[in-house]
Amino acid sequence: MTTAKTHKLPVRAAISLTKSKSWRHYPIGLSLILIIPLCLLLGFGFVYPVGRLLGQSFFAPDFGLDNYRRLLETPLYLRVLGRTVIVALIVMAASLALGYPVALAMARLRRDLAGVVMACVLLPLWTSALVRSYAWIVILQRRGLVNDVLLGLGVISEPLKLIYTEGAVILAMTHVLVPFMILPIFGAIRAIPTELVQAARNLGAGQFTVFARILLPLSLPGIFAGCLMTFILALGFYVTPALVGGPSSLLMATLIGQQTTETLDWGFAGALSTVLLCVTLVIVVCFRKALSNNRGISNVA
């Protein structure tokens, strides 16, 4: 009897919500008018371009799977795809290693000091990625800051090749994407009640035990969100790899850009985009399933 009443409570709550004035505060026509601009922007700015590009992968030049067959039969394109996934994973791991201590320090600092650190984290987001990429070119070029310092200290006898390498791409992409890792983790750590940490310390837990048993498990939703955003952004990053990377560090986004701007092969560019989209979805689903058994991850959208 109690179970039946319990199941009826959500239904009664939904019925009372539909009968309340707040539910019908706006007429249906006005609500549709309010969402039409957003739907049009989403349709013309995202759905239509992506749908047309994916359609051209099957219909250019003729209907068929020639573009996908070309992609699978050419080892170069498969190597580029594999390199893109590996670079994205490395950037994600580097951003997590650099971002988690910063987020933890921000959560433990006083409000005024935390605001200063937050401003330092947000400052790169206010600067164009193009400007930051050119700054790395100035720093890593043969007569750049790093080589000049090493030459001045006598560590090296001739300039090192630091720019236009895969390491330069990973370094520059990590610098650009690390704020997207810090902010979700900071929000997750700030949401942890301080009473839990105080109770653990009163019971004799040390710093490492508090971190391993309380802070890290409860901050997993923020870690998952930051890793997901950083990984997806790294997979489709274009500006930084195009400027800092060389032919040996070609990524999928740069390859797609070459197909659309230089060779004008829109059909093959659509096939590359479709494969990259499918790989992204598969990796995200696998990543979600792998972490879904951890506490708190199952509640992350």
Score class of each variant (00 low, 15 high):
19 K>N: 05
37 P>Y: 03
28 I>C: 01
106 M>K: 08
67 N>D: 10
63 F>A: 07
283 I>S: 04
254 T>Y: 13
51 G>W: 11
184 P>R: 07
148 D>A: 12
87 V>E: 11
254 T>S: 09
168 A>R: 01
255 L>S: 12
126 W>Y: 09
144 G>E: 07
171 L>I: 12
125 L>V: 02
136 W>H: 12
169 V>S: 01
113 L>P: 00
218 L>V: 08
32 L>E: 02
182 I>T: 02
65 L>V: 15
55 G>N: 08
285 V>Q: 13
218 L>T: 11
258 Q>T: 14
267 G>L: 11
112 D>S: 09
187 G>Y: 05
206 G>Q: 10
254 T>L: 09
209 T>D: 15
110 R>G: 14
9 L>T: 14
268 F>V: 13
233 L>T: 10
137 I>A: 10
163 I>D: 02
248 S>M: 10
293 N>M: 06
62 D>Y: 10
136 W>M: 12
87 V>H: 06
299 N>P: 00
226 G>R: 12
64 G>T: 12
206 G>T: 05
70 R>S: 09
32 L>Q: 09
41 L>E: 05
291 L>G: 05
301 A>E: 14
93 A>E: 03
2 T>D: 10
282 V>D: 05
158 E>G: 07
72 L>W: 11
32 L>T: 10
68 Y>R: 07
151 L>T: 13
257 G>R: 15
127 T>F: 00
134 Y>V: 13
277 L>M: 14
277 L>Q: 08
69 R>L: 11
62 D>R: 13
67 N>P: 09
12 R>Y: 15
190 R>H: 04
297 I>L: 08
12 R>G: 06
21 K>H: 11
40 L>S: 01
112 D>Y: 01
45 G>P: 05
44 F>S: 10
190 R>Q: 13
51 G>R: 10
39 C>I: 15
159 P>N: 04
104 L>S: 08
244 V>Y: 07
232 I>H: 03
127 T>R: 01
170 I>N: 01
176 V>R: 02
214 I>E: 08
11 V>P: 00
188 A>E: 04
267 G>D: 11
221 P>G: 06
214 I>S: 04
35 I>W: 01
36 I>E: 01
68 Y>K: 03
47 V>M: 13
231 F>K: 09
208 F>A: 09
86 I>V: 11
71 L>T: 11
15 I>G: 01
57 S>W: 13
47 V>K: 10
181 M>G: 00
47 V>Y: 13
210 V>S: 08
285 V>H: 09
32 L>F: 11
43 G>N: 05
34 L>N: 03
179 P>K: 04
253 A>Y: 10
32 L>G: 12
